[in-house]
Deep mutational scan, measured.
Amino acid sequence: MSIQHFRVALIPFFAAFCLPVFAHPETLVKVKDAEDQLGARVGYIELDLNSGKILESFRPEERFPMMSTFKVLLCGAVLSRVDAGQEQLGRRIHYSQNDLVEYSPVTEKHLTDGMTVRELCSAAITMSDNTAANLLLTTIGGPKELTAFLHNMGDHVTRLDRWEPELNEAIPNDERDTTMPAAMATTLRKLLTGELLTLASRQQLIDWMEADKVAGPLLRSALPAGWFIADKSGAGERGSRGIIAALGPDGKPSRIVVIYTTGSQATMDERNRQIAEIGASLIKHW
């Protein structure tokens, strides 16, 4: 067993022997301040990774656009098919120029040779490549099948209805392509620590998230040296922004954090800054 596999296998073990965790309302004060600064709703939840206990939450059962955070769930569904012998990570998928959609920095470079399922998941999570996500959605049967996968996990809230990039439209009061912070946090925890996926697939999923290259201005910008984070960000229309993450000190994750916002007129930089400040408060009061 590799060191990384050992780390993920012992996530519940280490967490069980940690000192009790206590909620700190100071972080919620910052979440509410972010709402004021952005002029928009902000949803927040913080779960203990081992027990699933909610440590703090704000608007945990209000719907927010998922945006690209759905790509972690998508690759979880792909990995479940791999575990069941219905898919192979090494299978190569070929596609054409007509398949390319807006923001496809990886797939646009491989029109000639195609990409493997493993490479597509890596591109979808680490670079948020939209064509990679659409190609992977095709392998599982489309958005409705991802929703069905989530329902089978016990998540009857999260739903995907459309493809990239239309799913980022974020129309107010439109339930399409949305989740709730509580539902997303619980589902992410199941994917990373539950028995739904094999140990190898859980490790692969967290490795992809740990290698995320496009979430630097968010929670990662607030992390002290030595902290662990595996995350996936999302951005959408109407001032929408979000991030889902597993993080913790001492090089291992111990909490799940989900943050979503929508309806702001603020710039992307300002949305990023507010999420980073929430992260800084979380870490300060850990």
Score class of each variant (00 low, 15 high):
S57K: 03
L38E: 01
R255D: 07
V157C: 09
G43W: 03
P224K: 02
L160W: 06
L79A: 03
Y95H: 06
S104A: 02
W286A: 02
D174M: 09
Q265E: 12
G142Q: 01
A34N: 12
T116E: 06
S201R: 00
A183L: 11
N272A: 11
D207Y: 03
A211L: 07
H110R: 05
V29F: 11
D36L: 06
A222S: 14
A211Q: 07
A215G: 14
G194L: 06
L47V: 04
H24P: 00
K144T: 04
K213Q: 01
V78K: 05
D113P: 03
I54E: 06
G90M: 03
Q204Y: 07
L199C: 03
W227G: 08
L38F: 01
E35K: 11
I140F: 12
S201L: 00
L199F: 15
T27H: 10
I171S: 00
Q274D: 11
D212M: 09
I243Y: 15
E210Q: 09
F58A: 04
R189E: 14
D269C: 13
P253D: 13
F58C: 02
F149N: 04
H151K: 10
A222G: 15
T138H: 05
D129C: 00
E175T: 04
K71E: 13
L28C: 05
L219R: 12
E164I: 11
R241C: 14
L167G: 00
V72K: 00
G114R: 12
I93C: 00
A211D: 04
K109T: 07
R91A: 07
G114W: 11
G141F: 03
P181A: 04
Q97I: 01
P25L: 02
T147K: 01
K144C: 01
L218A: 14
T126P: 07
V101L: 00
M127T: 13
N152F: 09
G85K: 11
P60A: 04
I275Q: 06
K144N: 04
T267W: 12
P253F: 11
E169L: 01
M153T: 04
M127A: 14
I259R: 11
P143D: 08
A84I: 03
D129M: 01
V82L: 00
L223H: 06
F228N: 14
S128P: 06
Q37M: 07
G263H: 12
I171H: 00
I275Y: 15
I45E: 07
G248D: 10
A230K: 07
E26D: 01
A235C: 12
E61C: 01
W286H: 09
G226Y: 04
Y95C: 06
L73I: 10
L197N: 11
V257S: 15
V257P: 14
E26W: 09
W286S: 03
R63N: 14
V31H: 11
K232H: 13
L28T: 10
R59C: 04
P105T: 03
P65Q: 01
K252D: 10
D155N: 05
Q97G: 03
Q97P: 04
G114E: 12
Q86V: 09
G248K: 05
L218Q: 15
P105M: 04
L146Y: 05
A132R: 02
N130C: 09
M153Y: 07
T112G: 05
Q86E: 12
Q203S: 01
D207E: 05
G234T: 11
P181D: 05
T179K: 03
R118E: 07
D48E: 07
I125K: 04
V31C: 04
R271E: 14
L197M: 02
A230I: 06
F64D: 05
G114S: 12
E175G: 03
L73C: 01
N173I: 02
A211T: 12
G236R: 13
E119H: 01
R238L: 05
V29K: 13
R92E: 09
R63P: 09
A84F: 03
I45Q: 14
E56R: 09
F70E: 12
W208R: 03
F228T: 15
A84T: 03
D250T: 07
T261F: 09
E237Q: 15
S80K: 14
G43Y: 12
I45D: 06
L247S: 12
D174E: 00
I243V: 08
I229W: 10
R91P: 13
E62V: 07
K30C: 13
S221D: 14
A185L: 12
D231K: 13
A182E: 06
D113W: 02
E46C: 07
K53D: 10
E277V: 06
L197K: 00
K252L: 06
R273E: 14
L100T: 07
V106C: 07
N130A: 15
T131S: 12
I93R: 00
T139V: 03
T131Q: 11
A133M: 04
Q203V: 05
D212Y: 11
K109L: 07
M115R: 06
T147E: 04
L120S: 04
A245Y: 10
E166D: 07
M184A: 06
V42S: 08
V29G: 07
L55S: 08
R59D: 02
T187C: 07
L218E: 15
Q97V: 03
A170R: 00
P217L: 05
I244Y: 09
L197W: 01
I244K: 15
S96Q: 04
S128M: 10
I275H: 10
V82H: 01
T138K: 15
H94I: 13
E164C: 15
V72Y: 03
G216S: 14
R159Q: 10
W163F: 13
P143V: 06
A40K: 03
R41D: 13
R255K: 12
H110D: 02
R91E: 09
R238I: 00
D99L: 07
L150F: 01
N168C: 09
L191H: 12
K30L: 15
L219W: 15
T193N: 05
R81S: 06
V214K: 15
Y260F: 13
T186G: 05
T179S: 15
E35Q: 01
L89R: 01
T262R: 04
D269R: 12
I275P: 10
G114L: 10
T267C: 09
D231T: 15
N272L: 03
K252H: 04
Q88D: 08
E277W: 09
A222Q: 15
L160Y: 12
A185K: 12
D155F: 11
M184Q: 10
P181Y: 05
A40Y: 03
